[in-house]
């Protein structure tokens, strides 16, 4: 059962991982996006619809990424170009996504798709414990293993990453050196949305293998919180995502093993856990926050 929970954590955490990485990129540039929940929703539907029509879940991933990126683009326009309040804009986009996916999603409810299937990696998958936990999953889970170091490398070792972090730490310095803060932030928010869209697509075409209204059920909001206590570092995001993935999958694992527990009490666990971790880490995380983001987070310091 422990192995089930750990393996479920990796599988269930993958959507949080992609969304969390996306949010990390966005927040590193100084933009918080509560619309991540919305980006995951449109990503889930976009991924499902494309998979349904093309028969290829890989194209579905692209569809999910495109849908998430489009929604995040609206956030970028409102927040970066129009100076709108970031929370208000994010929540607005969540609503927009709720409506859009309800309207365009009806046709896809209880339709069959050729979803991703678990691919066991030879040799590695046969290692006891580690094998089933890490190496017997759908391809998107493995993609997550690759994307984390990739994002970390881009963020900390490349010029693009330097520009991204400058936009979040000292936006005026970026401007002085002839770079456009606006362009950097657009790129960050939109690519963040694309990653959140992939996260959403993982839920519909690899995890649940179905589409239903409001299927993200708060995972996007968990992803946003995750980024804060991961202290804006991709590797911490990975650990946090799997931890919360485990909490999310706890309900189904326990039920599958015949343990009689109230499902709704279990459903609240990831959210409670997030609150507790945020509180315990509290001030320590904020010291690591990008300066420009702090202006958004600390509107009134108590």
């Amino acid at each position: 059962m422990i192995i089930d929970i750990l393996s479920g954590g990796v599988r269930g955490g993958t959507s949080l991982l992609f969304a969390g990485l996306g949010e990390t990129i966005s927040e590193r540039a100084g933009v918080i996006n509560l619309g991540t929940e919305g980006a995951m929703l449109v990503g889930a539907l976009g991924g499902y619809a494309v998979t349904f029509h093309t028969g290829s879940p890989w194209l579905g991933v692209l569809g999910g990424a495109a849908a998430g990126a489009l929604l995040a683009l609206v956030h970028a326009v409102l927040v970066v170009s129009r100076g709108a309040n970031q929370y208000a804009s994010g929540l607005t986009l969540f609503f927009l996504a709720l409506g859009l996916t309800a309207l365009f999603g009806v046709d896809y409810v209880s339709r069959q798709i050729t979803a991703f299937t678990p691919v066991k990696i030879p040799v590695l998958g046969d290692i006891p414990v580690v094998g089933p936990v890490l190496f017997d999953h759908d391809p998107l889970v493995y993609a997550g293993y690759v994307v984390v170091p990739l994002v970390a490398w881009v963020m900390f070792r490349t010029r693009a990453g330097l520009l991204l972090r400058s936009a979040g730490e000292r936006a005026d310095a970026l401007g002085v050196n002839g770079y456009s803060v606006v362009a950097v932030r657009y790129a960050a928010v939109v690519s963040g949305g694309a990653l959140a869209g992939i996260g959403g697509a993982h839920i519909s075409i690899a995890y649940a293998n179905s589409w239903f209204e409001n299927m993200i059920a708060g995972r996007g909001f968990i992803a946003v919180s995750l980024v804060i206590f991961a202290m804006w570092h991709p590797v911490n995001v990975l650990l946090g995502a799997y931890l919360f993935g485990a909490a999310l999958s706890l309900a189904s694992v326990l039920q599958a093993n015949g343990v009689d527990v109230n499902q709704f009490a279990l459903n609240a666990i990831p959210f409670l856990m997030t609150l507790v971790v945020l509180t315990v880490l509290g001030k320590r995380t904020l010291r690591k926050a990008p300066d420009e983001l702090l202006k958004v987070l600390e509107t009134a310091k108590a």
Partner: peptide, 12 residues
């Protein structure tokens, strides 16, 4: 739930 689109668009 489609009306959430209208709600969202007005806000946008």
């Amino acid at each position: 739930a489609s009306v959430n689109i209208l709600m969202g668009l007005v806000l946008v």
